[in-house]
């Protein structure tokens, strides 16, 4: 008897709390849906579907995987929309088909690339997959190399870039390279020298270049300089000294406000094998344009954080 009443009571509890839990669950789901719609946009699934035809039916030779990319974008969107509250200007300047995004590189770790990629996925119409050119060194890192492959990054070699551009992909390159990303706080928003490879490639493949200025990334980590001895000891390209790393929670970047300015596409013609000096002039034009976009963006900015 005892047992039966106990069971009866349990079932009473279940009957009473069941719908309550159900309602709670429904509520939680609604909040989660609202929240993901706010972060990812209500049309996220449609955006993924638009890319399906291109990337799921035929295996990408560089290992891009739409499912991984989808999850990566969903995660990155939290930073893009909530943490850095990115404002995007002129994204309609990115032409359809092959294009080369040339941006300033900054911020110690390549969050700028992730945010640009996220923005091309979530804010551009139609959505685009951004193939960033990464350093060869990253291919030696476990997990990093695997993840980079799957989200569409490729080792930055002219052969790879040529192949992708011929397949009408959107490439992202940072001609400042490692020198750009690791620059100390005192040199923020001053561009390092640009490499020339991207220009020869753009001329050869008749690709429009879209200059991009990323504002906000340069303040996310305050680096006081490069500890070259530590970099040598650990066999790393650079080892920045970042005091905030020693504070609790300081490992996260500072929640600066990101602003991305896409300039108008630039087209270059001529001989891709031309003299250094001729190519350098064209590279200078692109560098000046990025520099100009940065200067204008900085002038319009009222605060680093808002």
């Amino acid at each position: 008897m005892e047992r039966r009443t106990a069971l009866a009571r349990l079932s009473d509890v279940a009957a009473q709390t069941g719908p309550l839990l159900g309602r709670l669950y429904q509520g939680a789901r609604r909040v989660a849906d609202d929240w993901s719609a706010r972060v990812l946009g209500s049309d996220f699934e449609e955006r993924v579907a638009l890319l399906e035809a291109r990337y799921r039916l035929a295996q990408d030779p560089f290992g891009f995987d739409l499912d991984t990319a989808r999850k990566a974008v969903a995660t990155c969107a939290v930073f893009h929309r909530l943490y850095f509250r990115t404002e995007v200007f002129g994204i309609e300047n990115v032409p359809e088909g092959r294009a080369l995004l040339i941006a300033n590189h900054s911020g110690q770790i390549p969050i700028d690339a992730a945010i640009i990629g996220c923005s091309m996925f979530l804010d551009a119409t139609p959505p685009r997959v951004t193939r960033a050119m990464v350093d060869k060194w990253t291919a030696t890192l476990p997990f990093v190399s695997m993840f980079f492959n799957r989200v569409g990054q490729v080792v930055g070699l002219p052969e790879n870039a040529r192949r992708l551009l011929r397949a009408e992909e959107l490439l992202l390159a940072f001609p400042e390279g490692t020198r750009g990303i690791s620059k100390p706080f005192s040199k923020r928003y001053s561009l390092e020298d640009f490499g020339q490879g991207f220009m020869r490639l753009a001329i050869e493949t008749e690709t429009p270049i879209v200059p991009v200025a990323v504002i906000g990334a340069e303040e996310q980590y305050v680096s006081l300089g490069n500890m070259s001895w530590a970099a040598r000891a650990l066999n790393l390209p650079v080892f920045p000294f970042i005091p905030q790393m020693f504070l609790p929670g300081g490992q996260l970047p500072l929640p600066t406000k990101y602003r991305i300015h896409f300039g108008e596409p630039m087209r270059f013609f001529g001989d891709p094998e031309d003299d250094e000096a001729v190519i350098a002039d064209k590279v200078w034009l692109v560098r000046q344009t990025v520099s100009h976009l940065l200067a204008e963006g900085l002038r319009a900015r009222k605060s680093v954080f808002f």
């Binding site: 030779p61 560089f62 060869k136 060194w137 291919a139 030696t140 190399s145 490729v154 080792v155 070699l157 052969e159 790879n160 192949r163």
Partner: peptide, 9 residues
């Protein structure tokens, strides 16, 4: 090699 282009000629 990590430095290899995706397709070697």
């Amino acid at each position: 090699r990590p430095e290899n282009p995706q397709f070697l000629k």
